[in-house]
């Protein structure tokens, strides 16, 4: 019996090492292949200038238009989704505490929406735009992407809020707090690090998605100066360049991927830094 327990322990330990290793390996292979193919094409010119004539045939220029466009798009849509999603998550966890059935209904719908592929959101937005005769624009992209990441924001924040112990919530109530005071003075503070993670998660999804913006943002070689203009984005820049027959251009697609990964890395590190500073007040129950 004792011996069996020991083998069992070995087996599961081995399994854990194996899965950790395989995840690490996959990540490494992806990063390596992107870096290996893309690094030779990465240049200062690429991230500091917009495409010049013939850029897509291998001539000089850069993809600053797509970098800025993607940043506008994902920051805008994350902000929009957060502004709508945060109150909804708070509402579900604070105002509807007595209404558990209704809340689990909302959760179910959000989980369904989370699972809907982004191309469906793109197609939906496209239909609406045609119906109202709207042209592709940065704004249309922001709205579409925010619709697509809204369920992610809400459910991710919701999961964090659910970890707040009942006792803390009730202590706050017994001090005579109103529900909105609990939401913004207590739950928000207690969950701040988790909320940042939720925002990051949706930002990452937003900046990397190509399908939802394929029909909604259009594509241009210029940096957009208003919400009504079309805009380029990194995922589409990668997509267009990757389908080119010219090796030079395909290489640039990988370089653009590196830029995309770097942006996400920088945002993650920044938010880590800021959450650390606020985490000290969090109570660990």
């Amino acid at each position: 019996m004792k011996k069996f327990a020991k083998y069992e322990e070995w087996f599961f330990k081995g399994l854990m090492y194996l899965s950790t290793l395989s995840i690490g390996l996959v990540l490494f292979v992806i990063l390596f292949s992107v870096l290996y193919t893309g690094l030779p094409y990465l240049s200062w010119e690429m991230i500091s200038s917009i495409p010049e004539g013939g850029y897509y045939y291998g001539k000089s220029g850069g993809i600053l238009n797509a970098i800025i466009g993607s940043l506008y798009l994902s920051l805008g849509s994350t902000a929009l989704a957060f502004i709508v999603g945060m109150p909804l998550a708070m509402f579900m966890n604070i105002h509807l505490v007595r209404n558990t059935k209704f809340v689990s209904g909302i959760r179910f719908i959000l989980d369904l929406l989370w699972g809907v592929p982004s191309i469906v959101y793109g197609a939906f937005a496209f239909t609406i735009m045609i119906y109202f005769g709207l042209k592709t624009s940065l704004l249309a992209g922001i709205v579409t992407v925010s619709l697509f990441i809204l369920p992610i924001v809400v459910r991710a924040i919701d999961e964090v809020l659910m970890t707040v112990p009942r006792g803390l919530f009730e202590s706050a109530l017994s001090l005579g707090s109103t529900k909105s005071e609990i939401a913004y003075r207590i739950m928000f503070k207690q969950c701040f690090p988790g909320i940042i993670t939720a925002i990051l998660l949706s930002f990452g999804r937003g900046i990397g998605d190509a399908a939802s913006i394929l029909f909604t943002t259009g594509y241009t070689d210029y940096i957009p100066t208003s919400l009504g203009e079309q805009t380029a984005t990194l995922p589409l820049a990668i997509f267009f360049q990757l389908s080119s027959p010219i090796p030079e251009v395909r290489g640039r697609a990988y370089a653009a991927s590196i830029i995309l990964i770097l942006i996400i890395l920088i945002i993650s590190l920044l938010s880590r830094y800021f959450t650390k500073r606020y985490e000290k007040n969090k109570i660990n129950f």
Partner: peptide
């Protein structure tokens, strides 16, 4: 005022 079985300080 309510004093619970275990303390729940506020996150501040």
């Amino acid at each position: 005022g309510l004093l619970a079985q275990r303390p729940y300080p506020l996150p501040m």
